[in-house]
Nucleic acid binder design. Structure first.
Lengths: 252, 252
DNA sequence: TTGGGGGCTTGGTCAGACCATTACTTGGTT
DNA sequence: AACCAAGTAATGGTCTGACCAAGCCCCCAA
């Protein structure tokens, strides 16, 4: 037809599990399979598609890793393989590995975090509900406890940022924000544990968090966005960078 | 120890393939496995880990779907299972399915696109090279051909936005931008094909694209960001929404 | 020196069996 | 009639062992 030239590249020597995958994706993209629907049992898929059970299972594994499926043994209503929807789990896992592989240098990750969290905070300031505000406030207050171990401080920090992302009501932006934050969770904990002046750093983070919270609670879109962006950028510039430099990852 | 309370939730009844997965991820996160390294052959992993080959293969499938691995048969240097790095492939696939499952409503996707592409354009305006500028210009000029079929117009549009994302030099933001744009590729094509006043719409898009290009070429960060954001938002508001409303997906 | 062919390594696929978990059914007991 | 326990069927999870197909390497013959 009109095309040419662009049509000769892929030729993916399709392995059978990829064919199975394609069949299932087809149904999802066409809307015939929706969240909550059950797939036929593995053995039935084997008969229907004429492939081995191993091939079916490999396809299902892939979809499960993407957060699209959920499998349970047994007979009851909640058993079998059903279409689920847990994008952030798959997203987090994917980003975590790729960040570790340094396909995404720390600087890029920080830039992305700043972008996403800025957007999240702006949305939150606009749309947050009374309930959402409480979810943000809870980890904020828990972090005020000066005796909180660093690991739990880190978890609360994560919760705080996640709560903001979810308060904005945009699932996609929230999930990407959460995934990126989770992906650096371990790195940040390492940094925390290496700090000599921990209390000083913690105080600074607390103060910034409180300012962000106030801006969101006040519905001040611009301030919320700017503060979060500065918070993410500043933390990395002033603190993380010093620690990581010289302590190159993957060096023996 | 100091903890308690938070430690009693997960208990993920680990299936064996998950254990295998954990072992491999461990090595990646620790930096012992880096891009280009080869994993032991499947049969060796079987011996080392004391599990069946099926379990090993399921774990490898998951990593492959995440764009972390690449497997090839045969013996030579490029054969076997090696650590690769193709984040955007996995990312695109994941988002595509979840968008189809409507976990991510169109409005959220547009908001995310606006956010990401704004950031991309700003970075591009700051950092673009002569070469990068040409990559943006190429699809731009191809789209000027008024006789271009809609499908190829759509592809060029994708190329244009992808080129901007890559010109910014931030892989993570670029990959997320690309994944989101690719994930809506099919939807947009459907919309294009339903338009009565196609030429009018195409002209508008062309004009907006040219303005964006000029801003990036001139290094005008603010303008580039604002124009792209307006472009993405406006296109959806004025055009896509009208078409999609009433033509609910997944309805017979 | 060069060309070709056999053999080895590696992922891809399959068949068939058995295990573990879960819910439903059935039947006996109080 | 109500309740509890044993049995049973359905389902995912795992393993074994086999064979196929794609590549590369090396050795031998010309």
């Amino acid at each position: 037809m009109a095309d040419m030239a662009a049509a000769w590249e892929p030729v993916p020597r399709s392995r059978t599990f990829e064919l199975v995958l394609a069949r299932i994706e087809e149904q999802i993209l066409a809307g015939r399979l929706r969240v909550g629907d059950r797939l036929p049992p593995e053995r039935e898929l084997v008969d229907m598609l004429g492939v081995s059970r191993a091939a079916v299972r490999e396809a299902l594994r892939v979809l499960e890793a993407q957060g699209v499926l959920r499998s349970r043994v047994g007979t009851g209503p909640s058993s079998g393989t059903v279409i689920a929807a847990m994008p952030d789990a798959g997203l987090t896992q994917l980003l975590r590995l790729h960040i570790a592989l340094a396909n995404f240098p720390m600087g890029d990750v920080v830039e992305a975090r700043a972008t996403l969290e800025r957007a999240s905070a702006r949305l939150a300031a606009e749309l947050v509900t009374k309930d959402g505000l409480e979810r943000i406030r809870d980890p904020l207050l828990r972090m005020d406890d000066a005796s909180l171990p660093r690991e739990q401080f880190n978890d609360c920090d994560t919760d705080f940022h996640v709560a903001i992302a979810e308060a904005g009501g945009n699932r996609l932006i929230a999930d990407m924000t959460i995934a990126v934050r989770n992906a650096v969770r371990h790195t940040l904990l390492t940094v925390f544990n290496k700090l000599d002046d921990w209390e000083k750093v913690a105080s600074r983070l607390r103060a910034e968090h409180h300012a962000i919270y106030e801006a969101i609670a006040a519905g001040d879109t611009e301030a919320a966005g700017d503060l979060v962006e500065a918070h993410v950028r500043g933390f990395h510039q002033d603190i993380v960078k010093k620690i990581i430099d010289g302590a190159d990852p993957a060096a023996p």
